[in-house]
Design a protein around this nucleic acid. Structure first.
Length: 530
RNA sequence: GCGCCCUUAGCUCAAUUGGCAGAGCAGCGGACUCUUAAUCCGUUGGUUGAAGGUUCGAUUCCUUCAGGGCGCACCA
């Protein structure tokens, strides 16, 4: 790049900063530093202590003790506060330990930014003047010794300050911070700097994911990765995203579920497998739905849904205990939107028909009668009722009246076979399958069933799905011939389950929108120039 | 996809029945050697989301569009 090009680019770069004087001022400072031989975007700095390290190691020391010890430290972080006086000033640095959650501890966010004391005496004229030009948002490295201020705050008395990164765009207002929901999601990097609650949620999410892995690992489950791009979308009732492979010139679908691949692994002899990863569904967005979402699916040979209900209670309760602890009375509760949710096991177990019957103060027999179901479907405003089987009608009534009212953890069991094409029929009643969905806060958190391993029945179910597909249901599953072939080789009896990690995280972090637990939730593109 | 609501300075928010677009923080200049959202004095900063309309005059009323929030629908 020639000097002329370089000048042209500098102008173009300034233009994209919209001539905002706040941005241009900082850029001017950066350029001034460069002229004195200081690169405002440095690399590398030896850090010996985090803010949390210093608090943990010397938090109880008195001013005198600190003076005697003369502990030398090198810290680094982003300037969040800068209080300037004539010949002294204070910085508050935010580092990766700021507001961190101690392992096994509660979720209290400590305001453990590291304060730095700068003085003309300690730094000398030139360095002190340089520090006066530092802006909120700049990242600096500081070398100094620990001290306690007159007001009692443990601080680093700086002997040397190095600018590591110049920040061109100012941070939001320091008191109220960034509250605009759209900007919080679009500029998550700013949100994470400004909002301890956001940091807390994503740290909690990481612990939940880690705990799920540990839990399954401890029970002998093998973590596997199966294709994200499927030639045949299957394993769930959902509309897929389509994509295209150029070299093979073939249509592919982003997976809506890993289910059919994981069960092929049961055939292969991996008797306990799980996959914790993304699924993609081409459907509407809501507070509970994002086009891509994370689910853990696991399959256990020789187990039944009964076993998985126990396992699910144990898993979720243990994560809740890790994040929130137990109450003195031994119960495990989480607060969510003014509700107290009691996750202490065991949880209520109720069949679909029972839950509907309870809502209408009828009996399970009454709410599964065709005439009653048709009449109720009519009241809901359902169309094409005659074409729907009774199981589908029952589910419609359940979804319209019951599921969103199941606030406390509830296993809903005994689903109609017609809405569960991959589940094994109940031996006593072939019209239902041994399946459960876990509801908490009215959200479906988990879904599990005894897996259908009879290839002939599976073939029949796929054909029924095909018929529904031809009748216009674009969420009905297509036939998967290779999956049938796998079942013909022989799949051990098994139960499998999927748990929605996003919703589980919402439940355990008290958040009400899935966007709060996704680092970069799906958004429409911003308009140019904004 | 449909309905309701929101969009004003970098950020957080004001602006009376339609009558000169303002404040705090941030920034800039100045004072101040222990501050805690530091304080004090002075000061820069606006295509009021975009386009159109009504009006002598529009941040304000109307239309369309964009983005966002909430609800419904779809779904997990």
């Amino acid at each position: 790049m020639t000097t002329e090009d370089s000048k042209g680019h500098a102008a173009a770069y300034r233009d994209r900063l919209e001539d905002n004087h706040l941005f241009v001022e900082r850029l001017r400072k950066a350029e001034a530093l460069r002229r004195t031989g200081v690169n405002p975007w440095a690399h590398g700095f030896e850090v010996t202590h985090s803010a949390a390290d210093i608090q943990a190691g010397w938090g109880e020391r008195t001013a005198e003790e600190l003076e005697t010890e003369a502990v030398e430290v090198r810290v680094a972080g982003r300037i969040r506060f800068h209080r300037r006086m004539g010949k002294a000033s204070f910085l508050k640095l935010q580092d990766g330990s700021s507001g961190s959650v101690a392992p096994g501890g509660d979720e209290e966010e400590g305001d453990d930014f590291q304060q730095v004391f700068l003085s003309l005496d300690g730094l000398g004229e030139e360095a002190f003047t340089f520090c006066r030009g530092l802006d909120l948002g700049d990242i600096v490295g500081v070398e100094g010794t620990l001290m306690r201020t007159r007001r009692g705050e443990l601080s680093v008395k700086a002997s040397q300050v190095t600018l590591l990164t110049k920040s061109i765009r100012p941070l939001p207002e320091k008191f109220r911070g960034l509250t605009d929901v759209e900007q919080r999601f679009r500029q998550r990097y700013v949100d994470l700097i400004m909002n301890a609650d956001s940091r807390r949620v994503f740290r909690a999410r990481a612990r939940i994911v880690k705990r799920v892995r540990e839990f399954l690992d401890a029970r002998g489950f093998l973590e596997v990765e199966t294709p994200m791009m499927h030639p045949t979308p299957g394993g769930a009732a959902a509309k897929p995203f389509r994509t295209h492979h150029n070299a093979l010139d073939m249509e592919l679908f982003l997976r809506i579920a890993p289910e059919l691949y994981l069960k092929r692994l049961l055939v292969g002899g991996f008797e306990r497998v799980f996959e914790l990863n993304r699924n993609f569904r081409n459907e509407g967005l809501s507070r509970q739905h994002n086009p891509e979402f994370t689910m853990v699916e696991f399959y256990q040979a020789y187990a039944t849904v009964e076993d998985l209900m126990d396992l699910t209670e144990e898993l979720v309760e243990s994560i809740a205990v890790e994040l929130h602890g137990r109450r003195p009375d031994g119960r495990v509760v989480v607060e969510h939107g003014g509700q107290t949710i009691d996750l202490t096991r065991p949880w209520r177990r109720v069949t679909v028909a029972e839950s509907v019957a309870e809502h209408f103060t009828l009996t399970p027999e009454e709410v599964t009668e065709r005439a009653w179901l048709e009449a109720e479907a009519e009241r809901i405003g359902l169309e094409g009722i005659e074409a729907l089987d009774s199981g589908k009608l029952l589910m419609e009534v359940f979804e319209h009246h019951v599921d969103h009212r199941l606030l406390q953890p509830t296993f809903v069991t005994q689903f109609p076979a017609s809405v569960s094409p991959l589940a094994r029929r109940n031996d006593e009643n072939p019209e239902v399958v041994d399946r459960f969905e876990l509801y908490v806060l009215g959200w479906e958190i988990a879904n599990a069933f005894n897996e259908l391993n009879d290839p002939e029945d599976q073939h029949l179910r796929f054909r029924e799905q095909l018929a529904m597909r031809e009748a216009g249901d674009d969420e009905a599953m297509p036939m998967d011939e290779d999956y049938i072939r796998a079942l013909e080789v022989g799949m051990p009896p098994a139960a499998g389950e999927g748990i929605g990690i996003d919703r589980l995280t919402m439940l355990l972090t008290g958040t009400e929108s899935i966007r709060e637990v996704l680092l970069f939730p799906h958004m429409r593109p911003e308009q140019a120039g904004s």
